[in-house]
Computed example of a mutant assay.
Amino acid sequence: MNILFFMVFILFSILILRLGVVQILKGESYAAQADNTEVKAINLSVPRGKFMTRIIN
């Protein structure tokens, strides 16, 4: 039981360290990449399909 707890603790520690590296050390470069991303909004008229109903007698 102690080994399982230790393994889970180690895995969560690695995850927290990795998230810290991504957010703290590399956060500014990722923010710059996000700011440089170009998004274009294109408004196109999309024709709707025909609605067909079936009447059951």
Rank of each mutant, 00 (worst) to 15 (best):
I24S: 03
M52R: 05
L15D: 14
A34K: 09
P47S: 07
T37Y: 13
N36Y: 08
V39T: 01
K26R: 11
Q33L: 15
T37M: 12
V21G: 06
L11A: 12
I24Q: 06
K40Y: 08
K26W: 06
L44H: 06
K26D: 13
S45F: 09
L15C: 14
I16H: 07
D35Y: 13
K40D: 04
Q33D: 08
N43T: 09
K26H: 11
L17S: 10
S13M: 09
V22Q: 07
Y30D: 04
L15I: 12
I10C: 02
V22A: 04
D35K: 15
A41D: 09
E38I: 09
M7D: 03
R54V: 07
A31N: 05
R18V: 14
I14C: 06
I10V: 06
G20W: 01
K26E: 15
I10N: 02
D35A: 15
P47C: 03
F12D: 10
S13C: 08
N36G: 12
M7C: 03
G27M: 03
V21L: 14
V46P: 04
A32G: 02
A32Y: 12
K50M: 00
R18L: 15
F6I: 03
I42D: 15
I55S: 02
L19C: 05
F12E: 14
A31P: 00
L11V: 13
K50I: 00
K50A: 01
I14L: 15
R48A: 06
A31T: 05
